[in-house]
């Protein structure tokens, strides 16, 4: 452990291994755009019986499934897995193809302002939590 570590560069020490390996798994493949897996899109691992060719999954895919036992946003999944966002999107696209992950419908259609009662609840929550 370096005594004088620089916070801004911590990821290089802590995560370079998994990051580099994840790049190797997804290397050279087309990156799905943000459309399919927005940062606030929720995903969840499909029940085992629903999956198709689980045998093709790499450890990185399985790591994502572990983190997605309960519905989780793409942003949080990315953060927990420690991979880069673009890598997570590639892996999620694979998992979607395999039927191993479910992309959940958002509570509010993208680009729409939530109902006013929700916004009011958020304001109350921000002031009193």
């Amino acid at each position: 452990m370096r005594a004088d570590h620089d916070d801004a560069h911590q990821w290089l020490d802590a995560d370079a291994g998994p990051l580099v390996r994840a790049y190797a798994v997804t290397g050279g493949r087309a990156r799905p755009g943000a459309g399919l897996f927005d940062l606030v899109t929720y995903v969840v691992a499909a029940p085992a019986g629903q999956r198709r060719n689980a045998v093709h999954l790499q450890p990185e895919h399985r790591a994502l499934l572990e983190h997605a036992r309960e519905p989780i946003s793409v942003a949080e999944l990315t953060s927990r897995a420690g991979f880069a966002l673009g890598v997570v999107r590639v892996l999620l696209a694979d998992l979607l193809d395999e039927g191993a992950v479910i992309r959940m419908a958002p509570a509010v259609a993208p680009g729409h302002v939530p109902d006013d009662d929700i916004l009011q609840a958020v304001i109350l929550g921000l002031r009193h939590a």
Partner: peptide, 14 residues
């Protein structure tokens, strides 16, 4: 393909 169980996600505000 949809999950059979009715699951709801919270309203995500970015």
């Amino acid at each position: 393909m949809r999950d059979d169980r009715a699951r709801s996600v919270p309203t995500a505000i970015k």
